[in-house]
């Protein structure tokens, strides 16, 4: 099975986010492979281990997004593709999906694996757009995938449980953190990753032009914060204080 995993480089969730002057997220900070995509890489590697094939990582971002690809390669993926072009700075979901789709089409994979939503973008819109542009069916929120020949059986997480979804490949799935626990890259893996291929593509190579941005950020306001209340120690009176709050809220 030929599997493409889309991987995004994002600000490290363990460091604080900062903003640039133009209100875009600062990329100067520590950056990492999106933790959600790391689960996608892991699932792809497990599918390859069970069924054979190849795992290709595709990312769109600045040059240093290579580090995110390299991370996935050190986990065991076979090769990478980086779409990078100054024109892509601040790309919205549709432009991102168009760029990814063009690169992925050229590979003709059986399965495309994306994260359910990215850590920084959090729109969850790139995957369904990508599926449409690839002409592929999609199953979002996958927490388990079984392969039966050219068919997949996917457990799709829902608000009250899950659905069992059957779909033939080629298909696109988005995975939740429940799908697989990402492995640590071994020293051997890290060494091997150094010599793995990362192909670099620009917009022109993909035959794409940047169009009008779908939206403009007109302003930023501080989110409404709740007034902080009182903080008390758990001592002899704490339970009474909680009970008083519950009574005032009329729930007891």
């Amino acid at each position: 099975m030929k599997i493409v995993v889309t991987v995004k480089q994002v600000p490290d969730p363990n460091s604080n986010l900062t903003l640039e002057a133009d209100n875009t997220l600062s990329r100067e900070k520590e950056v990492v492979l999106d933790p959600g995509d790391e689960c996608g890489v892991e699932e792809a590697l497990q599918l390859k281990e069970a069924h054979g094939g190849e795992v290709i990582l595709v990312s769109m971002g600045p040059e240093r997004a290579k580090d995110a690809i390299r991370k996935g390669l050190s986990m065991g993926a076979d090769r990478g593709i980086l779409i990078t072009d100054p024109q892509l700075a601040g790309a919205d979901a549709l432009l991102t999906a168009r760029a990814l789709a063009a690169a992925i089409k050229a590979e003709g994979p059986d399965l495309v694996i994306c994260g359910t939503e990215s850590y920084d973008g959090s729109t969850g819109m790139v995957p369904p757009m990508l599926a449409e542009l690839l002409g592929a069916p999609q199953v979002s929120f996958a927490k388990k995938v079984e392969v039966d020949g050219s068919n997949l059986k996917v457990h799709r997480q829902t608000a009250d449980g899950y659905q069992v979804v059957e779909v033939a490949t080629p298909a696109l799935i988005t995975v939740t953190a429940a799908i697989a626990e990402p492995r640590y890259a071994s020293l051997k893996g890290i060494m091997a990753a150094r010599s793995k291929e990362i192909k670099q593509l620009a917009l022109g190579d993909l035959g794409i032009e940047r169009g009008e941005a779908a939206e403009t950020i007109e302003g930023l306001a501080e989110a409404e914060t709740r007034k902080s209340g009182v903080v008390i120690e758990f001592d002899g009176t704490a339970i009474d204080r909680i009970m008083a709050v519950l009574a005032e809220a009329k729930v007891i």
């Binding site: 549709l94 969850g124 819109m125 790139v126 369904p128 449409e132 997480q157």
Partner: peptide
């Protein structure tokens, strides 16, 4: 919501317009 996200994303790509999410 998960179901509407799937539909809205596909539709936007088909109509070639962007969208605002979340």
């Amino acid at each position: 919501t998960p179901d509407s996200r799937d539909v809205a994303g596909r539709l936007a790509a088909r109509l070639e317009v962007g969208l605002i999410s979340n």
